[in-house]
Design a protein around this nucleic acid. Sequence first.
RNA 1: GCCCAGGUGGCGGAAUUGGUAGACGCGCUGGACUCAAAAUCCAGUGUCCCUUAAAGACGUGCGGGUUCGAUUCCCGCCCUGGGUACCA
Length: 923
Amino acid sequence: MEYNFKEVEKKWQSYWKEHHTYRVETDPSKPKYYVLDMFPYPSGAGLHVGHPLGYIASDIYSRYKRLKGFNVLHPMGYDAYGLPAEQYAIQTGQHPAVTTEKNIARYREQLDKIGFSYDWDREIRTCDPKYYKWTQWAFIQMFNHWFDNDTQKAEPIAKLTERFAAEGNKNTHAACSETPVFTAEEWRAKNEKEQQEILLNYRIAYLADTMVNWCPRLGTVLANDEVKEGLSVRGGFPVVQKKMRQWSLRVSAYAQRLLDGLDTLDWSDSLKDVQRNWIGRSRGADVLFDVQGKDLKLEIFTTRPDTIFGVSFMVLAPESDYVQMLTTPEQANAVAEYLDYVAKRTERERQSEVKRVTGVFTGSYAVNPFTGDAIPVWVSEYVLAGYGTGAIMAVPAHDSRDYAFAKHFDLPIVPVIDDGEGHDMAESSYDAKAGKMINSGILNGMEVKDAIARIIDEIESRGIGHGKVNYRLRDAIFSRQRYWGEPFPVYYKDDMPYMLPESALPLELPDIDTYLPTETGEPPLGRAKNWKTKEGYPLELNTMPGFAGSSAYYLRYMDPHNDKALVGREADEYWRNVDLYLGGAEHATGHLIYSRFWNMFLYDLGYVCEPEPFKKLINQGMIQGRSNFVYRIQGTNTFVSAGLRKDYKTTEIHVDVNIVKNDILDIDAFRAWMPDYANAEFILEEGKYVCGWAIEKMSKSMFNVVNPDTVIEEFGADTLRLYEMFLGPLEFSKPWDTQGIDGVYKFLRKFWRLFHNGDSFKVSDAEPTKEELKTLHKTIKKIESDIENFSFNTSIPAFMICTNELSALKCDKRAVLEPLVVAIAPFAPHMAEELWHLLGHTDSVTTATFPAWDEKYLTEDAFDYPISFNGKVRFKLQMPLTATNADIEAAVKAAPEAAKWTEGKTIRKIIIVPKKIVNIVLG
RNA sequence: GCCCAGGUGGCGGAAUUGGUAGACGCGCUGGACUCAAAAUCCAGUGUCCCUUAAAGACGUGCGGGUUCGAUUCCCGCCCUGGGUACCA
């Protein structure tokens, strides 16, 4: 009986569904293990073969952990809010909820066919009010808390107002927006609105006028990680900087904890590096510069206070508040013109013309606190408003950007560091933090490192600044001017935001007639009828961004039906956090930062018991498409095979990879593919039409999308699972290429035949031989360590070798085959389940125990020692395992093969290495 | 520019982290079974030299180094992929 995957897979998939085989409950008698996939956004295109790569890997690991006695939580759900459904709604009028529902159904159908062991009773969708109730709830908590830099954690706002009433804000070190100092009396004298205004500067979720990335085409603002190279990640539309009143989350308050936490995580170094760079901690100093003729101090941040004697000008960001304060009447026109020019430029233009030097003089001069020199203050777009204070001291001799600016505007370049090798200042700046200080008064002769420490001391003792740590990480803009997202639980009274009571949650997304902004430019929610509280206060019109719903979803899976809490204490204390998280590296600076922030915040409040959400993280690589081409001879409808195309003038045309097999075109299918090709003629080589190929991104437009369903139809789910793992290391990006799939398909059928004699199932209860046991134990050992190391691509060859060996031995022993069924169950669950039942078990193979291996079956009595002289292998000697160096030396001397090597020489050294290779050094 | 990962047969990729390089699979070649095909099975397959074999030489991007021994470690380059970028 040949293996009938269609029948077997269908049978067990419905069995698992019926018996809720993968349902999981908290069970304190067993150790827990939480395996999570990054949940997908259900797009209209459905799954292609690249999507399940990570899901298959995590499923193998989950199944393995279960067989090892762990209580495994392995859930799945949908990140259901997103732009594509909304764009589709704008075009068609179809409610995004309907589109999303349809896409989810399709995803589920595709996922089910692959045989995953998800506990679907725990499914969540971010657009479900029962779920987003807790997203809104968390937002309210963030509004009601502030971050105390002294305790390095979130504290209730009530504690802050108490403090303000008692002592003003001078002793409070909070992560906050710039706030003037006030006394207790002043605080108490303020009215409600004034107090609320100040508290907004402190809240972790706050409303403020901030520079945002505005995308006119999408009609919404975007977070920093949603913009790449000046274009929106979704859609690729231009982005401009714009000041807008927006909700933000004070993620930057957690910068240091987000940085420190990385050391405790089992993530890849490259991913940690990406996060470290994104957080961008740098140590330096804030320094105050006097301004000539003005009662005003200019504050700058620098990481190179040691170069302060070399400052020859200052530069302000165009958006800096200092610009207005420092522009003199004579320069007013020039500055206004420049600001106008900057405002017109998109982010894309600014970034693509980095080398272009622009700027304008304000007319004012600052005073170098150490030299007393007057130094001109300029404005230039190369200084960013959002970093540091939006103003810098420029040291052209030791900063390449300042250098370019000084060269362009002919400003002085004063070297203050001698690198000892005569660096040519006429050519370039010397940026390295090494060398001896010169032209620097009190610092002269010091090494750069010491000079930095010395000058910070000096700055602090003179009261003109202080040492400071700065972070690149910005607060996350949290408002989106879109419809398809979580509504904010916010209403406005007297123009100030207030939170709805928790009892009013969830605040459900209202229906609207079109999904476009209103005529007055308000977000789509401006169209909703009765979008106000019972008391008649208007509700917030913005919705939350995509990352809102994905920031704490892993907590909800622990306790998905709890309507009293995001996660109940008991469930949280049992499941704690995610032991293994699988997903793409593209989330490094978005989701994986926000989630850690969100979790740390809930941790501060005592709602979760672990400070980090994801202990171990693996980034699976992308699967690229392998496109095929046909070559049409220009001006004809004749196509020439790839090998012959050099003789003709041809046009390369993408052809659907689904009508090409092993690069051979199915000519009839091609003629039927598109009407244009119905009468196509072909020039063949050896009777075949050979297609060209290339590796490209998998996408519809390149006709290279391979759907998992078609692979399953032809080869079965188990083959798909094995093949995706066999393709190469999980972390690598690799092209999808069906050429090798026959290999694993053959293997599965071979494995099946081990249990069959002709048409009938047949295993024997006889004692296995030593050789059979060796094969078994060797394989189990290898499989176990491979799974533990996520090296699935090498475990499949181990099974193949095992099958070949057993089949050569004609082994049909139950004692050998049964453990193998359990070992292969994580990889090929359908076949394993069938064989397990054929072996007479009535329970699912899921309830079995992963087989143990024993070293004693792997050792041998004697070993073939390859003997080599000076590293070159010449011959082998069989020696007992217990052989000593003296035995080997004697044996070597006695061996006739060694005579020509050892003659007239002495054996100086014998080295036995782990693989039983003997190296002999002759003298 | 900076940071990270990688470079091994015709192809995907192995190599217990310093120990017989090329496991396993694909592809290719030859053979068995078959009227034939499919399926299955067996053998061969890094390069060069050679009628063949034995034997040999070369071989993990390039150039050096350490070592009895280097795909693996060190130094200097080249190339590919990814991330990031006026962050002072």
